[in-house]
Design a protein around this nucleic acid. Structure first.
Lengths: 232, 232
DNA sequence: TAGTGGTCTAGACCACAGC
DNA sequence: CTGTGGTCTAGACCACTAG
């Protein structure tokens, strides 16, 4: 997987500001030469950065590094959990509820049988100690065989990837705005009826199996999502 | 541009339900054979569909067609205007304000000089005659030399692409939730303080020049955005 | 006109799913 | 084991930007 490694290296270098002078990445031939790979790898690596919005391509001119002020924005495609989105900040969780039960009425959403075991978790997510979002999540026990409060206190995403060695494949999201109810508002330090940015998440393993659905209510004054789209 | 054409064909076929029996696209060798192209084209075409969330790849198994109920959802990456998002529905606009002026305080956002000419447009966007969103948009006159009410009544996007022949390159979006003020609420048939899903748009030409910024307040009960992300 | 990224070909081997 | 998609190589030509 040379091109993913190359993308990581380039992203690091961008973040270190190594291309701030020119505002551009090195040209493709230069990168091929420097890393001893073919154009395929170079272009695939850059494509990843383009998708993340870190770089924008202009034919005939170069790959321009985008240093816009997106600090504090959540990248809608960067599905590695809140923790990785705010490197300089303290991301923590307060578990509101954690139970193992049968899927029941959630079987439809989870594409499983009503009798299948699931973990149901509600967490208040905190950013630098301040309430940031409320998360309601379901995990299929078939794929996530164990969860406890200690794990849920931290990054469930890291646990799934690093400890359970599950290989995530893709995710789709629905985003909309809603009113907070009284209980939600209290948790977020807002008032009932205040807006929330709601994100519904469906996460699949690389084998195409759905293993997790979640609904997250974000504090409307604190959460902003960012997306970059190629229009061609 | 074989692969873009191929993607269009496959998308059409998917929408016509031609792969509903198997739930999968034909394999890469089959598509290469059928269209007389190399794997490069086939894979690039499919990659476009994957990015749109129409198809999901499972290594060793196939390219599965996703027929989830995303009807009525706005694809966050499908930046071809509201009209194209709701093929079966009537999308119309009511122009609230249309003026040509100097950029002034908007120069920062537009990355232009304060003296540069811009069109400033506010529109109420209607879906099947019902208020759906309020749009505040700025266009740089350098790139969009003419706009009038008649054009703004319809799809400005089509006008820009089809009539002005501008080649759009990429766009980034910020998404968040806010409270509606009184004027906005009246336009949308809601109450002041009700939520809105807000999308800030920055649209660039293929040469990397910013030509349009906009902020759209969507009716919180009617607008849902959809996004598909590859996690690998 | 020179240099950039965009498209395309023709091949090879690897990783994974399912029989 | 077979067939699927994923990665990679080594080349070619095209489209666009900028001097």
């Amino acid at each position: 997987m040379k091109y993913r490694e190359l993308a990581k290296i380039l992203k690091m270098e961008i973040e270190r500001g190594e291309y701030r002078a020119t505002g551009k990445l090195p040209t493709e031939p230069e990168l091929m030469e420097r890393f001893g790979v073919t154009r395929y790898c170079v272009r695939n690596a850059i494509a990843l950065l383009v998708n993340l919005g870190d770089v924008c391509p202009v034919q005939g001119s170069g790959m321009f590094v985008r240093e816009d002020d997106r600090d504090g924005c959540l990248n809608i495609n960067n599905t590695r959990g809140l923790t990785s989105e705010f490197p300089g900040h303290a991301v923590s969780s307060k578990v509101i509820k954690l139970e193992q039960r049968e899927a029941g009425g959630d079987a439809g959403r989870l594409k499983c049988d009503p009798g299948d075991d699931v973990y149901s978790i509600s967490r208040l997510r905190l950013l630098d100690g301040e309430p940031f979002a409320i998360e309601y999540a379901l995990y299929l026990k078939e794929f996530v065989p164990y969860l406890n409060e200690e794990i849920a206190d931290g990054s469930i995403y890291s646990y799934i990837r690093r400890d359970l060695k599950l290989v995530t494949g893709f995710a789709d999201k629905l985003m909309y705005a809603r009113k907070l109810d009284r209980g939600q508002a209290d948790l977020l330090g807002l008032s009932a009826g205040d807006p929330a940015l709601v994100v519904e998440d469906h996460a699949y393993l690389s084998n195409g199996r759905l293993f997790n659905v979640g609904t997250v209510y974000y504090h409307y004054e604190k959460a902003t999502f960012f997306n970059f789209a190629d229009l061609k």
